[in-house]
Design a protein around this nucleic acid. Structure first.
Lengths: 208, 208
DNA sequence: TAGATTGTTAATCGATTAACAATC
DNA sequence: TAGATTGTTAATCGATTAACAATC
């Protein structure tokens, strides 16, 4: 199997294309063009065509792209034709919101368990789940074969939990704790910290 | 006042530097170097020095950077020496988590109000707030002088609420709805959609 | 002083865009 | 056919890195 190197910045745009295309499909659209998609996303048409061309030829000259077909191609490329089971670690407000989030449906992910180390929370219900004890996190996640985790514990516990997730054979961590994690290169990490995004915007705002 | 152009990609890294430096300060550290900070963040030392040098000379040869001083400089650059009042629109699980989030403290933001259009939620308590009716969103946000909003409504309502926020003179929107917004260039928008991050990671994972 | 580390320059590397032949 | 739009090439643009004089 030949493995062509794809820049990570290109990979990062594919989910955005996919989301917009699925939206178009829901709106009853069947065909689109790089120009239309680009206008919608604030990205140049050339960049979209270049990005897609890294993976194959998905369009037709003169016509554009069949939305359903391109959606399936992108789902295949991003490995989200399968549904990934996800563990949520931390049953505070963020963990709660993630365990109950309806937005994972049909996008490749399903929450499978939620864990916490707080005795007051263990055993309580969160959405369709019962909070499990994170003391046995490694065994539970490993034996369930879960490869994706969302980390929603306090910052001062995030690194140690991340270490346990890696021990449990998790390959991807979405970290909501406001701290940079130290992980091996083989582990995928993404960060969500609202303050980082807010500060990036206030740079451009006039001071009050 | 001279305005030097700073690439947005540089601006985007500054909050990450700031977060790590504040962490170091909390750990009792007083001095650091571009090398140490870079190792911590997985960024090259040269890049950190280059980024900082866009704004001034904050270090000392042979010594490095005084953490407290650099923190204050970055807070100044990012306009977070002032505290920005934030409106949360949408009182579902995500809005709830945002209204109650402790992580805004000392990082430049304070939630001031939470709004929703659901009669069942209006008037109920969320953290220290009472959910307000978003029917009068424009007047409430404008008269409060709020410039920053977090958008946590369903995707199919996000664009219309965004339009109202802009009408209310908001300059920055952090959008949790899984949809690309159409806004004027003068409005800052950032996106948080966990699925986008998850799909970016599954690209690199072995299929089950 | 000797060692360490900055700020900056120049070189390298990578990403984006413009343009167009191919073709539906 | 005429018009539209792709996939791709080459040119441009921008970001990162390596290296080092300056200096604490």
């Amino acid at each position: 199997m030949e493995e062509k190197f794809i820049p990570d910045i290109v990979v990062g745009r594919l989910p955005v294309y996919l989301r917009a295309l699925q939206q178009m499909a829901r709106d009853g659209r069947t065909v689109t063009s790089s120009q239309e998609l680009g206008e919608r996303l604030g990205i140049s048409a050339a960049q979209i065509r270049k990005d897609l061309s890294q993976f194959g030829e998905f369009g037709k000259q003169g016509t554009g792209y069949q939305i359903d077909y391109l959606v399936e191609q992108l789902r295949d490329i991003l490995n989200v034709k399968q549904v990934w089971e996800v563990a949520v670690v931390g049953a505070g407000d963020i963990g709660n919101a993630l365990a109950r989030y309806q937005g994972f449906a049909n996008r490749g992910f399903v929450v499978k368990m939620i864990l916490d180390n707080n005795p007051e929370l263990i055993g309580t219900a969160v959405g369709d789940f019962v909070v499990e004890d994170s003391a046995s996190l490694v065994e539970k996640i490993r034996s369930a074969g879960i490869k994706v985790a969302m980390l929603a514990v306090p910052a001062d516990q995030a690194q140690e939990v991340a270490d346990k997730l890696i021990e449990a054979n998790v390959g991807a961590i979405l970290n909501y704790a406001p701290i940079s994690l130290n992980v091996p290169n083989s582990i995928q990490v993404q960060y969500i910290d609202p303050v980082i995004h807010l500060q990036r915007m206030t740079y451009y705002l006039e001071q009050a």
